Amino acid sequence: MKKIIIISLLFFLSACAGTGTKNYSSISYEAPSDQAVLFVGRKNRYIASAALPKILLDGQEIARLGVGEMERMNISTGAHKLQTKIGNVLQLGTGGDSTSFVAEKGKKYFFIIDYDQKLLSASWSIVETTEGGFQGSLN
């Protein structure tokens, strides 16, 4: 019985870890001249801390962000669609969000993912921000 409890606990705890990073000092905020850079971060708030929303770019999953985590990726120029969706069955009934943007060479794009709790509903939101606003929301 102890083994089952320990294995279940380890499985649950590992499910709370996202694919992003909290080591912000290792992230380069520079954009290469031939590509654009996308930064996606999740606010550092306790609410919905066990939930890991899926972050999709143009329909492809790029991250599952835990509280205070961020993801950086070089992207091609042109039109893109950024989406949030529920990450597992525990989030059923939680809505997602999407936004579109046009990336230009050498530019940086910052987006914050947040959990919006209302009286009878909840949803993930995406908000575009500045580099300073992005860094401030992760701390």
Rank of each mutant, 00 (worst) to 15 (best):
S28D: 02
S28W: 06
Y29D: 09
E30Q: 15
E30F: 00
P32W: 10
P32R: 13
S33Y: 12
D34C: 03
D34I: 04
Q35M: 14
A36K: 13
A36R: 13
A36N: 11
V37G: 11
V40T: 10
R42V: 01
N44T: 09
R45G: 05
R45Y: 12
Y46D: 00
Y46M: 11
I47L: 13
S49Q: 11
A50F: 15
A51Q: 06
A51S: 14
L52V: 03
K54P: 04
K54Q: 11
L56Q: 02
L56H: 03
L57C: 08
D58P: 05
Q60V: 14
E61V: 09
I62Q: 04
A63I: 04
R64Q: 12
L65N: 08
L65C: 05
V67C: 07
G68A: 11
E69D: 10
E71Y: 12
E71I: 12
M73L: 15
M73I: 13
M73K: 15
N74L: 14
I75D: 00
I75F: 02
T77A: 10
A79S: 10
H80E: 00
H80W: 02
H80C: 03
K81N: 13
L82I: 07
L82A: 06
Q83G: 01
Q83T: 04
T84R: 07
T84L: 04
G87M: 08
G87Y: 09
G87N: 04
G87L: 10
L90W: 13
L92S: 07
G93V: 03
G93M: 05
G93H: 09
D97L: 10
S100K: 14
K105Q: 14
